[in-house]
Nucleic acid binder design. Sequence first.
DNA 1: GTTAGCACTCATTTAAGTCGAGTGCTAATT
DNA 2: AATTAGCACTCGACTTAAATGAGTGCTAAC
Lengths: 345, 345
Amino acid sequence: MELDERKVTILKAIIKNYMETGEPVGSRTISKYVNSKWSSATIRNEMSDLEEMGYIIQPHTSAGRIPSDKGYRFYVDQILLEKDNEVMEIKELMVQRMGRLELVLKALAKNLASNTNYAAMISGPQYHRNKLKFIQLSRVDANKLLIVTVVEGNIIKNTMVTIDEEISDEELLNLNILLNTNLNGLTIEEINLGVISRLKEEAGVHRQVVDLVLNEVAAVIKADGDDFQIYTSGATNIFKYPELSDSQKASELLSTLEHTEVLQELVGEAGGNQSETGIQVYIGDESPVQAMKDCSVVTATYDLGEGLKGTIGIIGPKRMDYEKVLRTLRNLMTQLDATFKKEER
Amino acid sequence: MELDERKVTILKAIIKNYMETGEPVGSRTISKYVNSKWSSATIRNEMSDLEEMGYIIQPHTSAGRIPSDKGYRFYVDQILLEKDNEVMEIKELMVQRMGRLELVLKALAKNLASNTNYAAMISGPQYHRNKLKFIQLSRVDANKLLIVTVVEGNIIKNTMVTIDEEISDEELLNLNILLNTNLNGLTIEEINLGVISRLKEEAGVHRQVVDLVLNEVAAVIKADGDDFQIYTSGATNIFKYPELSDSQKASELLSTLEHTEVLQELVGEAGGNQSETGIQVYIGDESPVQAMKDCSVVTATYDLGEGLKGTIGIIGPKRMDYEKVLRTLRNLMTQLDATFKKEER
DNA sequence: GTTAGCACTCATTTAAGTCGAGTGCTAATT
DNA sequence: AATTAGCACTCGACTTAAATGAGTGCTAAC
């Protein structure tokens, strides 16, 4: 059977209507919805066909139809084909000061969630190479040193260590030079025993300090896994959609959103098999996360350059407003791009 | 009427039982529960008295009794009187590396939540005085400077700025010295126009850089409001308690936990009228947060020295296991204290 | 090919009925 | 005087049955 124009119109009408109400939609409703061009009986026949073709589903014999995953898929693909025809402006300039990436990401997630009325998640950039770029030792208190470590991508980490021995300002300066000349540009793997022992030798009396510092630096560089965070926002928006808000489902979904480990899968997948635009839509079971089988998930990948990539996701009911979500995400990508391009110059 | 020993025993039995089951408890249950010393009829009479005295409530005529807020209050006060008789050890040494306070707090909240099966919140330390302790400028890229600012309490902030002009290593060193000698120990209020203009004068050609840096520093010191974060964990634990998990209540409560602004009130109140031990228990309506009127909230204030105080809170059903929660919190306080005392030496 | 009409289906709502945990009261017992 | 056994009574929770109505599929007419 073929999906002629009328069938498409009706299918779209069904999906649109269902997205608004969340209730199964019947033939009469559609008949009115499409300007009474066809009677309910005609619609019924078409609906029967559409069901046979798998685009819509009847939850039970005497109810209207709801879109199947296949139906949503059709609808989404349709939208994905259309070019961005308008670029809506996101109100606030979200990035005021790049001071704390973490805060920016949180704010971004919050914005997304409140704009769309769905749940939003955003992962911080993932670093793939971890070359050490810069180390700075500073004395803060008499016996406390501050270690500032900068790795490629300008990720900055601070560590405070307490030392036992005395060390003069001059010695500290020398240590700084020593560390930077020897370590900069190296990855964690390249800082091997040879390098370390040579460093210690050169450090002389302060080999203990060097040891301490190296340990911390190693920990810091390695720790990027710990530091890899996913922020969520608007999780409770799901209560706005009755089909998701019964205790059982809500609990499951919210738990998943809270224990961000599971979301990693989404991030991973999004990074991998991305489409041309970097935008992915998972409908129901298509999602790699089990708890989201009754939801739709839209992910987008952003790129900060220097190999830093992160993922933004919107989680909502299957009847989410795909047009709006896709528009918003595309828009956001554009703005992020612009912002970071500007930052880089 | 007087609250004699038997009434107390029965009241405790009712509360304990209700805490376990979450169901109204009847006279027969209690009769069995207290080792059949008294018959159900006797219990009934006593329960009738207890109800008259306001310690328990009958949700409807033909149901058992549940504790009223007053009943819980009695029970909690009882526990608060008892001395810590055991010091349970919290498994992991929660503070491995104080690298990132933020991560520690998050981990702590997570631990608390999973140990207690209630929701946990924890606020970062609030800074009251903000003396600048140390500034460090470092070159990271040809035209990028890293500003590390340390304020009292060893709170470290990083900012990256892009500069237009050339600046040599030596000049940078001089700038560092200039900034530190002039600014250290000052609060934001003390860094007034006079200080600034003098600094600029001394900086000579690099007054622009000084300007840039001062702006950032000011922003950073001021920003502690932004930075004041509340972390929550285990919010979805509330689904474990049927009396909280209907869609309506759950939604309200979870939203509140998500939009942490409201939680500020808890923090504020906890900081203020704290009891001797720094532990506060809010039962039902006693809570300053409206959405928690069906919950109990236990807060504890921790003290990191240097005027840094924060709040830890547990949010659960009224029938929460107060003994366990109080024990856990007391314990945690002790450990935190120990950890930070150790850190300080 | 389209539409009106009608019998049929079935989730949801409403009403009535049953069940049983739990109470309050009274009278008997200790 | 305190305790307990016994019993009628209450009322939410659960069960069952009937009523409702949105929506369908099919057939026959247009």
